[in-house]
Simulated scan of single mutants.
Amino acid sequence: MMDLLSDPTVKAGLALLIVIVLAAAAFFLVARLRDYTAQDWDTSDDRLSNFEEMRLKGDISEEEFRTIQAATRASDPKEATQPGTDSDTESDSHR
């Protein structure tokens, strides 16, 4: 076994393997820390207001806006359970 580890090719291969594992671990750690510290997650209210602005500018149609609005409500459980968060009345009041 010791003869195998004394071979320079095996040593280089093991060193390369260790470097690859350490680089992958560092990449994973940095990616997790960046996501955690950036805190740039959009809330559903921000996303809906952005889409409503796009609708008012004419970038998307009323039908597309309603589809996005329905999908957002379906994917956000806290918004679906809160009374009085009907965006239809909000968008009508902005007109």
Rank of each mutant, 00 (worst) to 15 (best):
D46E: 14
L5K: 14
L33S: 08
R47Y: 06
A38G: 03
V10I: 15
D88Q: 10
I68R: 00
S75G: 05
Q39C: 07
V10C: 03
K11W: 10
D40N: 08
D42F: 13
Q82V: 06
S44G: 01
H94Q: 12
L16V: 02
F27H: 14
E79I: 07
F65R: 01
R47C: 05
K57M: 08
L56D: 04
L5Y: 08
M1W: 15
L14F: 07
A25I: 06
L14E: 02
L29S: 15
A80M: 05
R73W: 11
D7H: 06
E64I: 03
I18L: 13
L16P: 03
R66Q: 13
A25T: 08
G13S: 03
F28P: 02
F51Y: 04
T81K: 15
A25K: 02
A38P: 01
A74C: 07
A74F: 10
A25S: 14
L29T: 12
K11L: 14
L16T: 13
T81C: 09
Y36W: 04
E79R: 13
I68N: 01
F65P: 05
D86G: 08
R55C: 09
K11H: 04
T9V: 15
L29V: 11
G84F: 04
L14Q: 02
V19K: 10
E64P: 07
E63K: 14
E64T: 13
I60V: 02
L56C: 03
E62Q: 14
L48M: 09
L29K: 12
L22A: 15
S87I: 03
Q39P: 03
S75L: 10
D88T: 08
L5S: 00
E79V: 08
T89W: 02
S75P: 01
D40L: 05
F27G: 04
P77H: 02
D3I: 10
P83N: 01
D40W: 00
